[in-house]
Design a binder for these strands. Structure first.
Length: 493
RNA sequence: GGCAUUGUGGCCGAGUGGCUAGGCAGAGCUCUGCAAAAGCUUGUACAGCGGUUCGAAUCCGCUCGAUGCCUCCA
């Protein structure tokens, strides 16, 4: 199904500062690159939000029928602690501190990253390349940039010449900065710097003898600069010009700015048509930072093993919570907010579980196809998941009214309602229904049905002591009985 | 200090020149043996101060606050 032909999708392009209709370079196909994690410690929750936003975007583009290649890299080298000459590679530093091989650090935290993403029900990207797997490509690009006069070698390191580039190109166009202002506001660097200009950035860093991560190059042993890997990998897998580049807001400058500079210096063309930036996650109104303790790991939320939240929350609930905010807005995580999302999530899932059992009629009180288009309109407006979710709750109201027999629906509308909800909740938002299809659920259902029957017998005999005991003890186990017009149902919390 | 984003009812969070966001919490009602669940009803929110306009939460200016970047950071 090529839904994209009938659904006009608009995206907010950070480069233009406007919402633009998404028109892929090649019709029906999209190339998307997202800056992945530096695997030097456990992936943190804010990181997850960014990747989740792009997972949702990936899912929606797929849903619209685009043929999409989604590349999300793993940074396993080149990410420096700081920009001074003695700046140390993050991976190498961690390896040194823990006295293990750099690749052990990479392996450990790559596994952690994948593990967490899987819990959050992420779709794997089409390609997940690593920086260390593309050293040759990076060296080739550096050679090319030097040849074109936009980089210089000094003491075995190579730097990008920003002022030179700025003479013929516009450095800072993505982040709204001007080179002159940046020069005027440059802080004093403490160490002597071999860079010609403070704005210049490293393409290749010389490895001192004690450095453990090193590769041979025309400039001697060293390692690549961080900004370069994304240019190398995006160019290799998506071409010199591709459709969407995503990442966190904080990467806009300097990382993405440098990517543009590198690509334009080599290829002469702007590498990306649409720049998409996901906003930050705060906790209790403050930025999440390990240094202040205002930080929580995904697994600590899932297990409840933390001092910040009153209970454990499932990955599905956290995902639902994040989807209730627009990806370009700052989102604040708090105990109250998660509790509210959990209730909303359960309400939504309860409605989903009830659709199949709805009886149908010859007419519908609910205009399902109009509602369906409203859902698409929300998503087409720069992936407005909060508005989409508001529409989903509108459907929940109708489902509940249908359950009570207060409204009617035709069989075809019911099927449309069901398929649309399935598509948006499970396929697009990627929210899992944890009450469904886990092994043992059927037996549990049979068992609870038995207890419901016993309770009904007791109630019919006005033996309320027994009936209440069954109900209350089940409630204590997290199984809630719900008396409706057509008998009793239950839900598991 | 500079650049950028942002400030919505008790909480979270959409929207954007006139028309109900939504979820959670609260109150009342219906249903019920009692509950729960569900349904219905209910909130005159848009940081402050000015300005533009027939009309602004929505546009403009200023003030105050928050967040991000400016050094690695999703």
């Amino acid at each position: 199904m090529q839904l994209y032909k009938s659904q006009k999708l608009k995206v907010y392009n950070s480069l233009s500062g406007k919402k633009e209709i998404l028109e892929p370079i090649t019709e029906g196909a999209i190339g998307m690159y997202v800056c992945g994690p530096t695997v030097y410690s456990n992936v943190h929750l804010g990181n997850c939000r960014t990747f989740m936003s792009f997972d949702m975007i990936f899912r929606y583009l797929k849903h619209l029928g685009y043929k999409i290649r989604y590349v999300r890299n793993i940074t396993d080298a080149g990410h420096l602690e700081n920009d001074a000459d003695e700046g140390e590679d993050k991976i190498a530093k961690k390896a040194r501190l823990e006295r293990i091989e750099p690749m052990e650090v990479v392996q450990r935290y790559t596994v952690d990253f994948h593990n967490i993403l899987q819990k959050f029900n992420f779709l794997p990207p089409s390609i997940e390349p690593t920086a260390t797997g593309h050293i040759i490509e990076q060296i080739e690009i550096i050679k090319d940039i030097i040849e074109k006069g936009y980089a210089y070698e000094i003491n075995g390191s190579v730097y990008f010449n920003v002022p030179k580039f700025n003479e013929t190109h516009e450095y800072g166009k993505l982040s709204g900065r001007k080179l002159e202002d940046m020069i005027a506001n440059t802080r004093e660097l403490t160490a002597q710097n071999e860079k010609q200009s403070p704005q210049d950035f490293a393409l290749w860093k010389k490895a001192e003898p004690q450095h453990i991560m090193r590769w041979p190059s025309p400039w001697g042993d060293g390692f690549p600069g961080w900004h370069l890997e994304c240019t190398a990998m995006s160019t290799k897998y998506l071409g010199e010009s591709f459709d969407i580049h995503g990442g966190g807001m904080d990467l806009k400058f300097p990382h993405h700015e440098c990517e543009i500079a590198q690509a334009e210096a080599t290829n002469g063309v702007s590498p990306v048509k649409y720049w998409l930036h996901a906003n930050m996650l705060t906790m209790n109104g403050k930025k999440m930072a390990k240094s202040t303790g205002n930080n929580i790991l995904p697994d600590e939320i899932f297990s409840g093993d933390n001092t910040i939240l009153s209970k454990a929350f499932s990955p599905a609930v956290v995902r639902f919570f994040m989807m209730q905010a627009h990806y370009t807005s700052i989102l604040d995580l708090s105990n109250d907010a998660l509790l509210a999302s959990e209730k909303g999530y359960l309400k939504l899932m309860e409605a989903m579980n009830g659709i199949e059992g709805l009886s149908t009629s010859s007419s519908s009180d609910f205009d399902v196809s109009t509602w369906q288009q409203k859902c698409y309109d929300a998503m087409n407006d720069d992936f407005n998941t909060p508005t989409l979710i508001a529409h989903l709750f509108e459907a929940v109201k109708h489902i509940n009214a249908l359950k009570e027999g207060k409204e009617t629906i035709t069989e075809s509308d019911k099927q449309l309602l069901k398929s649309t909800l399935n598509a948006f909740i499970f396929d697009v938002l990627g929210i899992e229904n944890k009450n469904e299809s886990s092994s043992g659920t059927d037996k549990l259902a049979d068992l609870v049905s038995l207890l419901i029957q016993l309770r009904k017998d007791a109630r019919d005999n006005k033996d309320f002591a027994t009936s209440d005991k069954i109900r209350d003890q089940l409630a204590a186990l997290g199984i809630q009985l719900k008396d409706g017009k057509d008998g009793t149902t239950f839900s598991v919390n």
